[in-house]
Amino acid sequence: MERLWDIEFQSVGLGYGDTVILDDISVILPGGRISAVLGGSGGGKTTMLRHIIGLAKPLRGRILLGGNDLFSLPDKALRAARRRMGVLFQDGALLGQLTVAENTALPLTEHTRLPSATVREIVLHKLALVGLADFADYYPSELSGGMKKRAGLARALVTDPPLLLCDEPTSGLDPISAAQMDELLLDMKARFPNMTIVSVSHDMASVKNIADTVVVLHNGGIAYAGSLEGLENADDPYLRRFMDRSPPQAGQVDDPRLQLAEGTRKLMHEALGF
């Protein structure tokens, strides 16, 4: 049986160069579950994902993947770990010079000697799962934003990875496409019960649909980590605003920069010919 891939952050500081984005965070994203990482724009969600993938090293602390410290692994073991991950990037990150089928087949054509007919069969199966079987020979430039994301998901899933990481899977999608993406992730979870899925998002509707556990990032740390029900019942003012989609409280309204002098506005309108 495939082991479960817990992702554990132990007193981790994340950032780039001298810039610390998340400091001293400790949290476990449990294996075999769907975890959602939430937070405001610029809150460190994508940074957290890039560190799980191994694209950036933490400033301090350890990130354990299935019990192994990702950044202490020998090169060969790190590469082996990466082959067990599927990653859906924000815009799909499809290679423009390859068709959808060639993009999806990439991990197989580069790492295996499978006959091309077998690769094609696997690729068409994955594309069918994401509803793109009829677009296998299209180029990414011929697809809509939602289709690119679904093609990116097919590529992320082509090796049946035990760990699937999604960066903003529903951002920029219309409500129907976003709901379809949620269904796809739930369908994957149903097909592969041991699969660990981490979805970085700020789409509350999507998170409510798919997540078993939730981590909320705020002010360079973790504002909440736990079940979705716990988040819905939280009393913390930031979490409440996040859940209720309400703006910051009064206080900032007095900021003089929020006021534009009537003369200035009139001058601008005259210049624009309004």
Partner: peptide, 13 residues
């Protein structure tokens, strides 16, 4: 800038 090189890296390419 379109994350395609990062995508190659995470596919171990």
């Amino acid at each position: 800038i379109g994350d395609q090189i990062d995508a190659l890296e995470v596919m171990d390419i």
